Computed example of a mutant assay.
Amino acid sequence: MATATLTAAAPYLIQQVYAAYTPEQHAVWAELVGRVLPNVERHAAREYLEGFQIIGLQPDRLPNLADITKRLGPRTGWSSTPVSGFLPAPAFFEMLANRLFPTTTWLRSRESLEYTPEPDIFHDVFGHVPMHAHRVFGDFLEHYGRVCAAVQDQMILEKLGRLFWYTVEFGLIRQDGEIKAYGSGVISSAGECQNVINGGCAIHDFSLDEVLNTPVKVDELQKVLFAVNSFDQIYEAMHEAEQRVERGSL
């Protein structure tokens, strides 16, 4: 859907000026990728690794969002759409509902390699966007945005936010007898990835009820995460969550 149809998100849309990135910024991107790529190659879900190739990510060059969108569009209809920064919830949900992933264009400095308090292009693109090449995951994410965009009750939105947190941000999947990561928070953070690999958090089978009732911790390594057996599970969970919202029983 054309960005001209957006209302809540329109003030936050910008252009990525790719030529403005400096050699130092490309070098920082390369260092960030180099720090996590060995873990990612061993422990990421195969759908993430396939998506990484599909969208054409380069280990030594910052991503060009227009080029990524050209690759994603014919496959799943998703666009990596540049935005000015953190979005208020209505704008964020509106963009997801239109298959426009809000993507920041700034990159953390060399002094902040380990952690940045708000998402940057490394978290957004390296962490999130490869999964947008997967049809079922892409359908889930659009559906999530559509459902949340229609909700006004903040308590309901908080619960739905837990579903996002434990899938899109910190989702795990069982593949070939192993735990693999697909959530951006695990993919893009060496610390969170090692926390999972080394048994620092409990891994529960994915359960919509448990996910909705597990509060989110944003300021510490995760202590419990949830593993699905297939991405159909989160797609079906989103439909169940929508039905509960409609029944007033979430």
Rank of each mutant, 00 (worst) to 15 (best):
A2H: 15
T3I: 11
A4H: 12
T5C: 00
L6A: 07
L6Y: 00
T7N: 12
A20P: 03
A20D: 14
T22E: 01
E24W: 08
Q25M: 05
W29E: 01
W29R: 02
A30V: 02
V36F: 00
E41I: 04
E41Q: 15
R46F: 08
Y48I: 15
L49F: 12
G51S: 13
Q58C: 09
R61W: 03
N64T: 05
N64L: 10
R71Y: 03
L72N: 06
P74N: 07
P74M: 09
R75D: 06
S80D: 02
V83D: 06
S84W: 03
S84M: 14
P88M: 14
P88L: 11
A89L: 05
A91T: 09
M95T: 08
A97E: 04
N98E: 15
N98R: 13
P102I: 05
T103H: 06
T104G: 01
W106E: 01
W106M: 03
S109N: 11
E111P: 14
E114H: 03
D120G: 01
D120N: 00
D124G: 07
V129L: 12
R135M: 12
F137W: 11
G138V: 00
G138I: 00
F140Q: 13
R146Y: 06
V147L: 14
V147C: 10
A150L: 03
D153G: 10
M155W: 10
L163M: 12
Y166P: 01
T167M: 06
V168F: 07
V168T: 14
F170E: 09
G171N: 10
L172K: 04
G177I: 12
K180Y: 04
G183S: 10
G183V: 14
S184A: 15
G185P: 08
V186G: 06
V186Y: 05
I187L: 07
S188G: 05
G191R: 09
C193F: 15
N195W: 06
I197P: 02
N198P: 02
G200F: 11
G200P: 04
I203T: 08
S207D: 14
S207I: 10
E210S: 12
K217L: 10
V218L: 10
D219G: 01
K223D: 10
N229D: 09
I234L: 15
M238K: 13
E240C: 13
E242S: 10
Q243D: 11
E246H: 11
R247L: 04
